[in-house]
């Protein structure tokens, strides 16, 4: 056994601060944070990043990434990021938002930032529920899913259908890149990282708006074990929220 040759092949990225997170066991925010941190390191972005956090469990992202950050009001992160990017076009600006923040209260801000083609990147964590406030219905809650405000399950005729954000974003003119990944298995996590990297590259090249949705588990509010919650992504979420790249202007000849 020659431990002399041993190499550390997987460790905490430098941009992710060495501290315990406040997230529940099996929550996928930690995976999403780490992917972002790895890319900030690999793409040498840490010194030019200005992070905009949102409201929800992920508000504390600013405690976990070692970068400059501002806290946006609920749903307004794309507007705040627009202001930062317009004020400092040479910096790298991204938002990190949950489904309640982005797809409900922040719907106007995300749609218009995307449509203007703001040169920012958006990480959208979709776990079909308001996490921090205790598990209420989100715009992405699936039909039949019980939450604290849909105790009998979300009903199509009463609450409407879950919103597919990536498809909507992909339909907008200013968008350079829109993709949906999942954090439920190793293959999907690696693919999700490639999606985020692509979105970041579109900002760096000044091409346009980049959007990556990440299907994630919220075991606590789904009232499931981490393993059962993780399985739910494959069984229930992916059939409704299909994975893949929905827009990539580098394959279409670019936007004007």
């Amino acid at each position: 056994m020659s431990e002399m040759n041993e190499k550390l092949v997987f460790d905490r990225p430098k941009s992710v601060i060495d501290r315990a997170t406040h997230y529940c066991p099996g929550c996928h925010h930690g995976v999403a944070h780490r992917l972002v941190g790895e890319l900030l390191d690999e793409m040498d972005l840490a010194e030019k990043v200005i992070l905009t956090t949102s409201i929800g469990c992920s508000v504390f992202l600013y405690n976990y990434l070692n970068v400059d950050a501002v806290e946006a009001p609920h749903g307004r992160a794309p507007a705040v990021a627009t202001g930062i990017k317009r004020a400092r076009p040479e910096h790298f600006v991204f938002t990190y938002q949950g489904d309640g923040d982005l797809a409900s209260i922040g719907m106007a801000e995300i749609i218009h930032a995307a449509n203007r083609g703001e040169k920012i990147s958006v990480i959208f964590v979709n776990n079909t529920v308001y996490g921090m406030t205790g598990g209420q219905m989100a715009p992405t809650t699936l039909i039949g899913q019980t939450t604290t405000t849909t105790p009998a399950g979300r009903c199509m005729t009463h609450e409407g259908a879950p919103i597919r954000m990536t498809e909507i974003i992909a339909s907008l003119g200013g968008v350079a890149y829109a993709a949906r990944g999942s954090l439920d298995n190793v293959k999907n996590i690696r693919k999700a990282k490639k999606y985020i990297k692509k979105a970041f590259e579109f900002q760096l090249s000044g091409t346009g708006f980049g959007f990556v949705e990440l299907l994630s588990a919220c075991p606590t509010n789904w009232k499931m074990t981490p393993l059962a919650a993780n399985e739910r992504i494959q069984k229930e979420m992916i059939p409704y929220f299909p994975l893949g790249v929905f827009k990539d202007v580098s394959e279409e000849g670019g936007i004007c």
């Binding site: 200005i50 946006a72 307004r76 705040v80 202001g83 990017k85 004020a87 400092r88």
Partner: peptide, 11 residues
């Protein structure tokens, strides 16, 4: 909120 962002950036 855009104003908030630009102000946060010190501009």
């Amino acid at each position: 909120n855009m104003l908030l962002g630009a102000g946060a950036a010190g501009v």
